[in-house]
Computed example of a mutant assay.
Amino acid sequence: MTGVETLIAERSASATAVIPDIAHYLLNAGGKRIRPLITVAAARLCGYEGQGHLALAAAVEFIHTATLLHDDVVDDSALRRGKAPANQVWGNAQSVLVGDFLFARAFMLMVDAGSMRALHVLSRAAAVIAEGEVRQLAAARQIATTRDQYMDIIAAKTAALFAAAAQVSPILAGASPRVEAGLEIYGRELGLAFQLVDDALDYGGVAEALGKNTGDDFREGKITLPVALAMEAGGEAERSFWARTMGEGVQGPEDFDEAVARLKRHGALDATLEQARAHAARAVEALDAAPDNVWSQSLAALAEFVVERAY
């Protein structure tokens, strides 16, 4: 990961000062680097001894960061990792263009890795992520969104990059199709678990005290799994609350607390985390296709960490 961080610093540099300013503002904002960590660990798991995996891991992080820059413009978020998002500091136009710069750098890094198949996997993932974001935007404030529709959205906008991050390393290492397929499934299932935990954390998870970054999904009218489950359980009697607050965006100062109370009353947060736990378990099961070594054990531990951070 030290090598990945070095590449990130080198490839985010530019003579145009605002580009590294914005890029480093987000890249150094305390992200966990889970996606590139998967790429690095998967390469070691497969016995890869070259350096190409570092370029792919950095490319994965650049793709992720670029999507965050674009998301903040689309969502008009108030916070990103505990501070003002880049678009509120530098403006929408510059944030979008720096996101484009990071996408371009990502593709340069993919080429440097020297694998056309890895390039194909990551470039396809970038397209799928964009499709997922468009679908999520179309579903905003649509309270008719079902749990299945939402799972399809997060499979595209979140799980696709996790899957690609895990798959490119066995490709680079020349691993067997069985190992490659197992790691792709691991990444996809872990990505679903990760997003579902995020969904629950936006309403405080199962903790009694709410975190300082809660409520963005509610304010933006995103129908995530906890809300979809609560609407199913509450039926028509409670539909007017969700229609007003999330469908129409008419929210008072007490509405978020009321939303959290309804989610907890119907067990929607616990059910969301239980589903996340099931996806994490399937991710660990998929590692059975890979060699049993310290790296596969580390990836299994990562799946546990992703879920347990909600508690």
Results as ranks from 00 to 15, higher is better:
M1Q: 07
E5D: 13
E5C: 02
I8H: 06
A9F: 09
S12R: 02
S12I: 00
D21A: 15
H24P: 04
A29P: 08
A29C: 10
I34T: 15
R35D: 13
R44F: 10
L45T: 15
Y48D: 15
E49D: 15
E61F: 08
L69G: 13
L69C: 14
H70M: 08
V73Y: 05
S77M: 01
R80Y: 00
P85G: 13
P85L: 09
Q88G: 13
Q88L: 13
Q88A: 13
V89L: 13
W90S: 12
G91T: 08
Q94E: 06
S95G: 13
S95H: 04
V96K: 10
L97C: 08
F103Y: 15
F103G: 07
F103M: 12
R105H: 05
M110N: 07
G114Q: 03
S115K: 00
A118S: 10
V121S: 09
R124L: 00
R124P: 00
A126H: 04
V128F: 10
V128G: 07
E131T: 12
R135T: 02
A139N: 12
A139I: 01
T146I: 02
D148Y: 04
D148M: 11
D152V: 13
I154N: 06
V168F: 01
P170T: 12
I171Q: 14
I171R: 02
G182L: 01
L192E: 04
A193I: 03
L196D: 00
D198I: 04
D198M: 08
A200T: 01
G205H: 09
D216I: 10
L229W: 11
A233F: 06
G234C: 01
G234Y: 08
E236V: 11
E238A: 01
E238I: 00
R239M: 04
R244W: 09
G247H: 07
E248S: 08
V250Y: 04
G252W: 09
A259G: 10
A261K: 07
K264H: 14
L269I: 15
D270N: 10
L273Q: 09
L273P: 11
D292F: 08
L299I: 10
A301F: 07
L302Y: 06
F305M: 12
V306A: 14
Y311R: 14
